[in-house]
């Protein structure tokens, strides 16, 4: 049997599964996005772009902009936290401890996200753990919960490992001789970081960036639970169309606009990836 036939045989089951369970339903959704809501919350099939026009109204564009802002901030913070940790594991930790430390990064993800968010509420609230600790050392209490900072904490908490693991993977692969050469040639630590270490880990940064940015765009639990639902993000908006207003056609149109945004983001991440490969 030829390698080509083998490859086709290996690919077919998964491709067929995704065709039936993903592509066909998405086509049904696209058709729905061209229709309108019936009085009882069903779908009236039409061929109209009205829902897309509505999705581009200033009210909803503002919500899209806000979501992009949150996702960008989450990605930047995850990078700032995860990069040093990944570097530490890759270069400063004895080999035998590495896999344990990596596992510890993802272990919290085997508990429900909702349950972990509620644990954060217990930590942050007015009479919560952190304020009790502050009071114990004689400091005043803060309103830590139900604000944008709390949303950011929840988001970063939820996405951190998705940044750390690809970063670690790219650091493992990089050529250590380049780092040594930079040190031998007398470059300062800061300069070595900026001109050698960061560029070399660019593939990891791009991959992690995509993996964090995309789910953050659709975030809705952290804004609701930790932010006190005082801001609307695309995730909440889409959720509300299906689960509250029962306006599936508009929800579908919104989500196709969101998917378009995501594709733009992925395309943007491709350029540093390609540049890094050329290096």
């Amino acid at each position: 049997m030829s390698a080509r036939r083998q490859a086709l045989l290996l690919l077919a089951p998964a491709a067929l599964t995704l065709l039936v369970l993903f592509a066909v339903p998405q086509a049904l959704m696209f058709e729905a996005s061209l229709g309108r809501r019936s009085a009882y919350g069903g779908i009236v099939h039409e061929w109209s772009l009205a829902n897309y026009a509505r999705a581009l109204e200033p009210l909803y564009l503002g919500i899209f902009a806000r979501s992009v802002g949150l996702a960008a901030l989450t990605t930047a913070l995850c990078l700032a936290l995860a990069w040093p940790v990944a570097w530490w594991i890759a270069f400063r930790v004895p080999q035998r401890h590495k896999s344990a430390l990596l596992v510890l990064l993802v272990l919290p993800f085997w508990t429900s996200f909702l349950v972990r968010m509620y644990a954060w509420i217990v930590l942050l609230r007015t009479e919560g753990v952190i304020n009790a600790a502050l009071a114990a050392v004689g400091l005043p209490a803060f309103d830590l919960l139900y604000n944008d900072l709390a949303v950011l904490i929840g988001q970063v908490y939820g996405e951190l490992p998705f940044m750390a693991l690809p970063l670690y993977a790219s650091m493992e692969k990089l050529d250590r001789r380049l780092l040594e050469a930079a040190a031998d040639l007398g470059a300062s630590p800061l300069r070595r970081l900026r001109e050698v270490a960061l560029p070399l880990t660019l593939p990891g940064i791009a991959a992690g960036g995509v993996l964090v940015f995309i789910p953050s765009l659709g975030a809705y639990l952290a804004p609701d639970l930790l932010g006190g639902a005082k801001g609307v993000y695309v995730g909440n908006l889409v959720q509300a169309q299906f689960a509250v207003a029962r306006d599936a056609p508009f929800g579908a149109a919104l989500s196709f606009v969101l998917a378009l945004l995501v594709l733009v983001a992925v395309a943007a991440a491709r350029r540093p990836l390609a540049a890094a490969r050329a290096l």
Partner: peptide
Amino acid sequence: LEALFALPIVVPEIVIASSLVLLYAA
């Protein structure tokens, strides 16, 4: 093919959810 395999990660969960409802109903 790449798109078929990459998009399920990209599309929001709620959209996959309601599109599957349409499929199962059909």
